[in-house]
Amino acid sequence: MNLYKLGKALCAIIFYPLYRIKVVGRENIPEKGPVIICSNHISNFDPPIVGITNNRNIYFLAKEELFKNKFIGGILKRVHAFPIKRGMRDRNALRKGLDILKQNHALGLFPEGTRQRNGEIGKGLAGAGFFALRSEAAIVPCAIIGPYRKFKPLKVAYGKPIDLQPYRDEKAPAQVVTDLIMEEIRQLHKIHSEKG
């Protein structure tokens, strides 16, 4: 068993009972082909939570600072994380992300770029739109509905893939596409928050 699968199994054993995770819409994630999962960001636990609530092996972008410690950086790389400089203007990271999608893998993004501790969904950075426009990946919105409290329910909702082909045909600005993705996440969050 590789480190990614081991880590995923251990996180599932810990987080599912700890946060009583409920998953909605898992069937909306394509089983094959390139996919970008775009989620809101409320906690450092979000990447493993997204990782264990679907059947794809996800490659996550992580802030460059986390890789400065060689031990931690080494572990992160072995669990499919790769570094990006803040602001999503890192060309090497953008190329790496596109290469991952070209290989029909899943890419995990938190378009806000930083945690929103107040639980609100903030404005997304243009990087998510860049990946969406420059690839043929399915774009799946994800809403993590918290907060994280021990033994209190945490819901993870996946929406249907967003049809971005018209935006690709029109060569829309990356920020416009990111704003559309974030609005889908907001609506998903609102619907499933109300359902309880």
Rank of each mutant, 00 (worst) to 15 (best):
D169I: 07
L133N: 10
Q165T: 14
I144M: 11
I100E: 05
A126K: 08
P166Q: 06
K171S: 08
P173T: 13
Q103R: 11
P161G: 05
K152Q: 11
I139Y: 05
Q165W: 08
L188T: 00
V176K: 15
K150W: 09
R115H: 03
Y167D: 13
L109N: 14
I144D: 06
G113F: 10
R186M: 02
C142I: 05
L164V: 09
A157Q: 08
A143V: 00
G159C: 02
S135V: 01
I100N: 05
L188W: 01
F151V: 01
I162S: 06
G129I: 06
A128V: 05
G129Y: 06
G196Y: 01
R117A: 11
P147H: 04
Y148K: 01
Y167C: 12
K123M: 10
D169Y: 09
K190Q: 14
M182C: 03
A174H: 15
A106M: 10
R117C: 09
D163K: 12
A132Y: 03
I181S: 02
L98V: 12
V140F: 10
P173Y: 08
H192G: 00
A137R: 02
D179C: 05
D99L: 08
F110W: 13
L133H: 13
M182H: 05
L101S: 05
K160D: 05
K171R: 14
K123S: 12
Q175S: 11
L107V: 11
G113Q: 12
V176D: 15
D179Y: 07
P166A: 07
L98A: 09
G146T: 07
L107C: 09
V177E: 13
G146V: 10
K171W: 13
H189N: 09
K195I: 00
E112A: 14
L164M: 06
H192Y: 15
N118K: 05
S135R: 06
F110Y: 15
G97W: 04
V177K: 01
E112I: 12
S135G: 04
V156W: 00
A172R: 15
Y148G: 02
P153A: 15
H105C: 12
A174W: 13
R149K: 12
A132M: 04
E183S: 01
L188Q: 06
C142E: 07
A172C: 03
F151Y: 10
